[in-house]
Every structure is written in structure tokens, then in C-alpha cells.
């Protein structure tokens, strides 16, 4: 393998960063570039609920200090949005009108919040929780003892709800079919889990889906949410938690096989020899399920980064998930998701 191989890792998340560090261990001399649309170094988004506990400096969330990248000679390109992939010339087009050539490419662009189509008109009236800035905004919007209205209620939302309630606020959760995403729950389990949510202090609102959202004038982010049955509730902020969709828009013309995410074999390789995918962005062939499927959560994603890195550096490795996909009810009646685990 020529030492000048340029490994480009698209995505500054868990999958991308773990892959980059493994590639570096295995190939001390190759060129590694991590490309990120965000402004920050890799930070721990699982910890973000802590902004409600007063941990409000982004540096406190960093997984690695700047020196980490320097000492490993990993180039980190931030605020660099990829707009197109040309597999023939092996180049990525960047939004600021530059190109980037790769020898081997790992796509680990993760996912972003899914917003049901009927709510797209209200996107501006909601606040996600997908990055540090938004997390800070959300925290700033909620008054002391104020109310967060969560729509949907995937495991990320439920995780956040725990902290929001623990720090003295109210959480009203408007249920949806995607509540508990990505866990698949049967109707009977759902009843149990909803009870667990109530035990956790979440105010479950089961009066139908959201119909529209209105701004309350004279306030910053306070909103009124109108439900199908005509009722409306008021909150300091409205946050959608309908699960994630893979970030693949820039691949439209690339010829990479996709369904919802990027389709890869258990070695995480795409249809192209020199392109792999890892993390929330990929759907991996599962012989067991006889289908391509997603695997979420810290452990899975990190393992994917490792598998991809090995395959990219000439060592065959295969992804298998060891993470349970079952929700658990704790002895105190509260809910627990194995996806919340990270180290």
C-alpha cells in the first residue's frame, strides 16, 4: 500500500473519528482527512443534555483536545460541506467551490432529525437537539420550571427528557407512532412503556397527532401546539423527536446504491471498491433478517468505524452487532434503553 494513500473520512461523529484513529494506528504514514460540516472538534453529543445541568462550555464536551489531531497528523476540515461525490474522478465537491480528492472514502455522515411531512411547514417553530448550539438555544428558551413540548419521543428525546425533568422542568410528550424509535414495540409493550414514562415524570399527551404550531407573540420561542382533537398545549419550546434519517442528499448523483441509507455489505463496503460507509448513514446487509438494516447507538456505530477502518487498510473484518435492541423497565419502574450506553 503506498504510504501516500489519502483516506478521506466524511463525518466527524463517532464512526468517522473512531475509523480515523484506527486507520492511523494501522497506517502511520498515510494521509487522513476528516471532513465535517460542523464548526467544532468531535464532541460527545450523548452528553449534550448536560447543558441543562449548567455544563455550557463546548470545550467540556470535547472527546479529544486539538493536540490529539496534531499528534496523529489527522487533518480535520470543519465547516466543510460536501455537495457531491464523483466516484469516477474520486473527488468530493465542497460547498465553498473547492474539490477534494480521495483514494479511499469512508462515508459516515450520520443522520439528522426526521420531521414528518405534515409538520415541515413548522420546522422553523421547532428546535432540535442535534448539536451544541441548538442544545444551548433549547436550554436558554426554557424558563425555570418551564415546559418542553416533545413531539414523537424517540430514545434521544426520552434521554433528554430525563435530564430536563431532573433539572426542574416539565416535559409534555405528544405521542406518535415513532415514539420509542428506533425500538420496535408491540401495542402491549407500548402501554407498559408509556406507564414507565409517566413514572419518570413525563406528561404523556395522547390526544392525537399535532395539527399545527403557533408562535406566541411577545415571547422568544414559546409556542402553542394544536392537536388533532382541537386541544392545544403551551410550551417554552417545541422539540421534534421522530427519529433520524440518514444524511445522504449529497450522494444523489454518485451512483452509490441506496435505499434510505447507503447499502453496504457486512464489511461495510459500498458498491464501489474504495468507498465504505459506517454509522447511522448505512444500512448493512443482515443475513439473519435477509434485509439491509440500520444499527444505532454508540457501541454499534463505533464498531462500524473500526470494521470500516480495518477493511480500508487491507484487513478483512465483518460487522456484527452485540447491542440488545430491547427497551428495559428498571426496578423503580422507569425506562432504560441500551442505546443510551456509551463510554
Amino acid at each position: 500500500m503506498p504510504s501516500s494513500t489519502h483516506h478521506v473520512v466524511l463525518g466527524n461523529g463517532i464512526a468517522g473519528n473512531h475509523a480515523a484513529s484506527v486507520i492511523r494506528e494501522r497506517e502511520p504514514d498515510s494521509r487522513i482527512t476528516i471532513v465535517s460540516a460542523g464548526a467544532l472538534l468531535f464532541y460527545n453529543r450523548y452528553d449534550l443534555p448536560n447543558v441543562f445541568r449548567g455544563r455550557q462550555h463546548w470545550v467540556d464536551y470535547l472527546v479529544h483536545p486539538p493536540e490529539y489531531y496534531e499528534s496523529r497528523n489527522i487533518t480535520l476540515r470543519r465547516k466543510t460541506q460536501v455537495t457531491e461525490l464523483d466516484t469516477r474522478t474520486q473527488t468530493l465537491s465542497l460547498a465553498h467551490r473547492e474539490t477534494l480528492h480521495y483514494d479511499k472514502l469512508l462515508i459516515a455522515t450520520g443522520g439528522h432529525a426526521y420531521i414528518p411531512e405534515r409538520l415541515l411547514d413548522y420546522t422553523k417553530l421547532m428546535l432540535g437537539f442535534h448539536n451544541f448550539i441548538v442544545a444551548m438555544q433549547a436550554q436558554k428558551s426554557v424558563r425555570k420550571g418551564g415546559t418542553v413540548i416533545m413531539l414523537g419521543g424517540d430514545v434521544m428525546g426520552i434521554d433528554l427528557a430525563r435530564t430536563v425533568i431532573a433539572t426542574g422542568h416539565r416535559v409534555i410528550l405528544v405521542l406518535d407512532s415513532r415514539t420509542f424509535w428506533p425500538h420496535e414495540v408491540t401495542p402491549s409493550e407500548r402501554v407498559k412503556y408509556l406507564q414507565a414514562l409517566t413514572n419518570m415524570g413525563v406528561e404523556v399527551q395522547d390526544s392525537g397527532r399535532v395539527e399545527r404550531i403557533e408562535m406566541i407573540s411577545g415571547t422568544g420561542s414559546a409556542r402553542r401546539v394544536f392537536l388533532e382533537n382541537g386541544e392545544h398545549i403551551r410550551g417554552d419550546v417545541v422539540m421534534p423527536f421522530y427519529g433520524l434519517v440518514p444524511t445522504v442528499d449529497f450522494l444523489a448523483t454518485s451512483g452509490i446504491d441506496m435505499e434510505r441509507g447507503i447499502l453496504v455489505n457486512p464489511q461495510l463496503q459500498t458498491v464501489r471498491d474504495n468507498i465504505w460507509a459506517a454509522g447511522d448513514v448505512c444500512q448493512i446487509w443482515s443475513a439473519k433478517h435477509n434485509a439491509y438494516r440500520f444499527f444505532y447507538g454508540y457501541r454499534n456505530v463505533k464498531a462500524m468505524g473500526e470494521v470500516a477502518a480495518h477493511n480500508m487498510t487491507g484487513k478483512k473484518a465483518t460487522f456484527t452487532s452485540t447491542v440488545s435492541e430491547e427497551l428495559v423497565i428498571n426496578r423503580d419502574g422507569t425506562l432504560y434503553s441500551p442505546y443510551w450506553e456509551y463510554d
Binding site: P66, E67, T75, L76, R77, R78, L94, R97, E98, L100
Partner: peptide, 8 residues
Amino acid sequence: HISGHLKP
């Protein structure tokens, strides 16, 4: 482009 030259 300068974005490729920033230090971490």
C-alpha cells in the same frame, strides 16, 4: 481554500 489549512 483556507478552510483546509486551519489547525484543529
